[in-house]
């Protein structure tokens, strides 16, 4: 979305909700069509709002380009996301963005890629995979390691079958298996040996719960992956998305404007990024 310099950056654009697709009991995919076409890239996010409830940062789950709808994967986690879950087709949401740096896409050119996702952390990584699928020269072998708590909490499961058919190595694991689960059980970080790429030469894109991100980045680093090729996207409390409200500030960086995508190198040099 191009904005003129003088325009109010806090002014949201309305978007029609075309479809709400439940993915898990707590997560739905919202297909929305903004009143004007917006360009965005994988790893960026929008400030999504419902008047009366407030705004929240949501990363894009669709690849963009073309004339498809904008897709937002939203988990019911608080007041605003709870209210958003009350929406159905025909309702209106409001958007500002896209914001943030997005994933460094040229990093993977000529390299194998490992995408590591946990839970709803799949959402920002989905457009990345779609990008690799649509641009065959953009990366070598693509492996997706995806972990969820329970089988019913796996998002985009059917879509993953399609990815598999198109050449992506998809490895799924759950913490707590249910009846009929035939995949793996355990942490996503236990799957390194199943990756058919040379990790030392690959690029990793990671998103998921804080603990998982930390574990995955640390382990990949120990396995010899250079820290500037271990990429993650961070989540934070945000109110503006444009580096003013102060909520997401971590060390000298703002997650909204300097991120949300960071390399392990950047994160390691600033201990403030990951807390807890």
């Amino acid at each position: 979305m191009k904005r003129k310099g003088r325009e109010n950056v806090y002014l949201p654009l309305s978007a029609d909700v075309e479809e709400v697709i439940p993915l898990t009991p707590e997560t739905s995919l919202f297909r929305v069509r903004p009143e004007a076409a917006i360009e965005y890239s994988p790893g960026q996010f929008f400030m999504v709002s419902l008047w009366g409830a407030g705004e929240v940062p949501i990363s894009v789950a669709s690849l963009g380009g073309g004339d498809g709808p904008l897709e937002l994967c939203i988990r019911r986690a608080g007041l605003v996301t709870g209210a958003l879950h009350g929406l159905e087709a025909g309702d209106t949401v409001w958007l500002r963005g896209p914001y943030g740096n997005g994933f460094p896409l040229d990093l993977s050119r000529g390299r194998d890629v490992v995408v590591v996702a946990g839970g709803i952390g799949m959402a920002p990584l989905r457009p990345l995979i779609l990008w690799f699928l649509e641009n065959p020269g953009a990366a070598g072998r693509v492996t997706l390691l995806y972990g969820a708590k329970r089988p019913e909490e796996i998002v985009f499961r059917e879509e993953m079958d399609g990815w598999r058919e198109r050449g992506v190595d998809v490895l799924l694991t759950v913490d707590t298996p249910a009846k009929g689960w035939e995949g793996r059980t355990g942490l996503v970080t236990a799957l390194w040996q199943d990756v058919r790429s040379d990790l030392q030469k690959a690029v990793a894109y990671i998103c998921g719960p804080d603990v998982m991100i930390r574990a995955a980045m640390g382990e990949l680093f120990l396995l010899g992956m250079p820290e500037e090729r271990i990429i993650t996207t961070l989540e934070a409390h945000m109110k503006c998305g444009v580096g003013k409200c102060g909520h997401c500030y971590a060390g000298p960086r703002y997650i909204c404007t300097d991120g949300p995508v960071f390399s392990y190198r950047e994160i390691r040099s600033h201990s403030h990024f990951l807390t807890g």
Partner: peptide, 21 residues
Amino acid sequence: QPVSPDACVKGSRAGRVYDLA
């Protein structure tokens, strides 16, 4: 209560947005 259901606008009945600077 911070957000009450009837305080949110869902549909497209909303009108204009004004800048209050």
